[in-house]
Design a protein around this nucleic acid. Structure first.
Ligand SMILES: [Zn+2]
Ligand SMILES: [Zn+2]
Ligand SMILES: [Zn+2]
Ligand SMILES: [Zn+2]
Lengths: 164, 164
DNA sequence: TCCGGGCTGATATAGTGTAACGCCCGACCG
DNA sequence: CGGTCGGGCGTTACACTATATCAGCCCGGA
């Protein structure tokens, strides 16, 4: 048995990584090993992950890793639309879009909203066009030219709402 | 001449402070001198202010001021709905609501959105019910129970959009 | 008087994010 | 082949944001 270290790599995650590599190569982006590792950590997590939590995990594979290591990878992944930052949590999640709502007609810089459960920490990405339009319209009504929009709702997820 | 230090207090700000003191007294809140000073600094600023910028200014009046000093005041002011935090900037602004959109029918815990100019830094608070409803509806459609909502749009303000 | 709670002072520490420099390596070109 | 140019990364150092904790003070109520 050669593989002494139980990496336990989720095949679904690996597939998503390959797909992501393709997608960003098509845009001139370069999915390096480091970026792949960081994205793997994010996709493997069940909840938004802080940059320093990623750093800790990353050091298992890269002992010399430092804050800029992970922040640079995160910056790239965000530009590629593979990862979003949850501002209220100072944490990062993989984009649920590529499989879930690319069919909405949005590209890799798609509008999105987060539903953050304050009890269990579950964070769900949704892509509601009514919300996106309402926000853009409200902004433009004042002469403002919107570029990027953050919408984050804190509350109770369906499961926790029932339990409460 | 007794007043050797030129405080240059904006009378409009002072009026707002008095009004704020009333409003939060009516809710059982206590507008102390410290909290009043912090709120004055925020209301006197033209753009969102970071906690440590507030701290620096506050030290002019309170040499012993430390981070908890300003964070505790900010927590109180946020609870009272007098101040909002702009998540994308990690900074704080006075609520534009008490004069501007209390007539919308919202209380001191009103929904609001920020329009943040990436060029000049101007940050405008708006209160659009269509946005608030769209977000709440999108959340509830998934069984989520919304509690607090953050909506922040980064882009170009009307003036900067013309200049560009 | 004694107690309790709210507010503040003060110190220490935790958590988040960037600046700046330099090296490596592969692409491109004369 | 030598040169150079840019992207990606390692490394160090630092800046900025936020919280935990304990102690003192004041004031109102039992
Ligand atoms: Zn997404
Ligand atoms: Zn939950
Ligand atoms: Zn407001
Ligand atoms: Zn502007």
């Amino acid at each position: 048995m050669v593989d002494t270290v139980a990496e336990s790599r989720d095949p679904a995650v690996e597939a998503a990584l390959d797909k992501a590599a393709e997608a960003c190569a098509a845009r001139g982006g370069q999915m390096t090993e480091l970026r792949r590792q960081v994205l793997r950590l994010i996709l493997s997590a069940r909840a938004p992950v802080g940059a320093y939590a990623l750093l800790d995990q990353l050091r298992a594979a890269r002992p010399g890793a430092a804050p800029p290591t992970v922040y640079r990878a995160l910056e790239f992944l965000q530009e590629q639309g593979l990862v979003h930052k949850v501002e209220r949590l100072n944490a990062f999640v993989g984009c649920a879009g590529p499989d879930a709502h690319h069919h909405c007609g949005h590209g890799h810089d798609h509008p999105h909203q987060f539903l953050i459960c304050g009890r269990c920490g579950a964070t769900t990405e949704v892509c509601d066009d009514r919300v996106a339009h309402a926000v853009a319209d409200a902004a433009r009504a004042t002469g403002f030219v919107p570029h990027r929009t953050t919408v984050e709702v804190e509350g109770l997820c369906a499961a926790c709402a029932l339990a409460a």
